[in-house]
Amino acid sequence: MKPTVIMVGADKGGVGKTTTSRALLDHLARKNMPARAFDTENPRGTLKRFYPDITEIIDLNSVADQMKILDTLDSAAVKVTIVDLKAGNLSSSLDTFDRIGVLEAARHGQFDLGLIHVVGPSVASLDEINEISEYIKGINYVIARNFINETNFFEWDEKTFKKYFADLPDAQEIDIPKLNEMAYEQVDLAGVTFSDFVDNKDARGADATFSFVLRGYVRKWVSDLDAEFNHLSLLQNLGRAGSETAAKPKAEPQRAAKK
């Protein structure tokens, strides 16, 4: 299986980037696809709080930390790497990856590279797409519209949206559905993965006493989110690679960008 790196980033804080990374790691775990994660929220590391065993906090400006990700792609036991990019650092991170030849290597097929770009409802978020467009050609680019906090994407009228996507015909789009506030808060307080919360397990794996209703809300949200992730060609490729040894499945049609 070819190594895969999935970056999750946003140039704006508070748009649900780390929630998306958590949801993605959960999704991969449910699909029996082991993954490792790098949290660039140096030195705090929100992602590491939920996935302490598989997450390492790094400083993407440090050459040594860049090597931790890139020089271990082939040798690492797990082939899927999630990089949660620090808020506000999307453009500069892509620029770093471009300068050290990562983007070019991915374009030449040495590994699969994807970017999940979590955006807010403003035109400023759409402007981010313009800013990074030169970097994302030839890599899997996914726009994630985050509704988790019941965001209203009122500014995203069809015409404006299409204008920004004109140069990105291969881009895909997913929606991160809304999750009940109290359920979200309880998962956060418990410091567990979404899947463990649904399974009523605490951070040590012991039986917990989470509310049935709140677990139900999270179960439904996880199920809706799985449907969104399942549309992504980047993740479909992972699924195919993972099951190649068992049987060669038929290729599934990819969903085009929604709009």
């Binding site: 009940n180 506030e181 109290m182 359920a183 509310s211 049935f212 209703v213 709140l214 139900g216 809300y217």
Partner: peptide, 8 residues
């Protein structure tokens, strides 16, 4: 939501 939790 706390009412729903209390009930169910």
């Amino acid at each position: 939501t706390d009412g729903q939790v209390r009930l169910f």
